[in-house]
Simulated assay, not measured.
Amino acid sequence: MSGAEMARFGAVVGGDLLSIFVPGSGTLTHIVNKVIERRRERAAEILLQELSSGLHGPVIFDNLDVEPVVAMTLRISRAVSDGTSMRNIRFLAQVVAGLKKNRLLSEDAFLKWSKIVESLTRDELLVVGFAYRATLHRKGGDEREVDTAFRDALTDMCRAAGIDDNERTFLCAAVSRTGLLVPVSAWNGTAYHPSKLLRELGTLIDLTPPFSEEV
């Protein structure tokens, strides 16, 4: 049996099994479509919540905002279909509201942030949140001391959350691919510093860990 034939066979068997355990479901496609429909409905609720009474308070749009907001809504809908978590969908909604509040609303601005926010896992978000909190404690002075204070604060918060040093390094490397953290050479390996992007993101979404799972 070829790979394609096995795939078709698996889909048929899966559909038959689901029809047994979920009466009236019919086929796997029907189940998947129903799940996507529910996820889109939940995403719409989240978007309306954030725009009406969310992190940035009530957001009022004008006629010039219609086209970019429609484009952003379509992008969020696509993210839902692609399997983006509801937690990250809420962050995307906060980006829309935050851009409007900060008078930065545009399709390009939303696209930039959506590419970053959509892909972050829960653990990566924890590191991003801790890193942002650590930047709030950064004060002027010797650059080396400032960087050391940031690293120590980030390390302490990660350890308190059960993230050991090796995992923290791995997560920081993953986050650095988004541009939120910047890798720099250090005497004992690679260190990670907060970027301007991280500080900007902190003005758009709620980066206060822990992050609950949306349903």
Score class of each variant (00 low, 15 high):
Arg38Gln: 09
Arg8Phe: 05
Leu207Ile: 09
Asp62Thr: 07
Ala161Leu: 05
Ile20Cys: 11
Phe150Val: 10
Leu105Phe: 06
Ile31Asn: 05
Asp108Val: 03
Thr27Gly: 10
Thr121Ile: 01
Arg168Gly: 00
Ile60Asn: 08
Glu45Pro: 00
Leu28Ser: 06
Arg151Lys: 14
Glu124Thr: 03
Gly140Asp: 13
Val35Met: 14
Val96Glu: 05
Leu201Glu: 05
Leu126Ile: 00
Glu107Ser: 11
Ser52Leu: 08
Lys112Phe: 15
Arg42Lys: 14
Met6Val: 12
Ala79Tyr: 06
Arg159Gly: 00
Phe9Leu: 14
Gly98Thr: 07
Thr135Ala: 08
Glu37Pro: 02
Arg159Leu: 14
Thr155Phe: 02
Leu201Val: 03
Ala191Lys: 03
Asp142Val: 04
Asn88Asp: 02
Ala153Leu: 12
Ser85Glu: 04
Lys112Leu: 15
Ser2Thr: 10
Ser81Asp: 13
Val12Lys: 14
Pro58His: 11
Thr190Phe: 06
Ala153Gln: 04
Leu204Pro: 08
Ile89Ala: 09
Ile60Pro: 00
Thr178Ala: 14
Leu181Arg: 02
Gly129Gln: 01
Ala191His: 03
Arg151Ser: 15
Ile36His: 12
Phe170Ile: 10
Ala191Arg: 09
Thr135Cys: 06
Pro68Asp: 10
Ala186Gly: 15
Ile76Thr: 02
Val13Ile: 15
Thr135Gly: 07
Arg87Asp: 06
Lys101Asp: 10
Thr73Trp: 13
Ile89Met: 08
Gly3Arg: 12
Val66Asp: 05
Pro183His: 02
Leu64Phe: 10
Lys34Asp: 13
Thr135Ile: 07
Glu145Thr: 02
Ala186Ser: 14
His56Thr: 05
Ala174Val: 01
Pro23His: 02
Ala173Cys: 01
Phe21Asp: 08
Phe130Gln: 08
Glu143Asn: 00
Thr29Gln: 13
Arg122Lys: 12
Glu143Leu: 11
Val128His: 05
Pro183Gln: 01
Glu50Phe: 05
Leu136Trp: 03
Gly14Trp: 09
Arg78Gly: 03
Pro183Gly: 06
Pro210Glu: 08
Arg103Ser: 14
Ser2Cys: 05
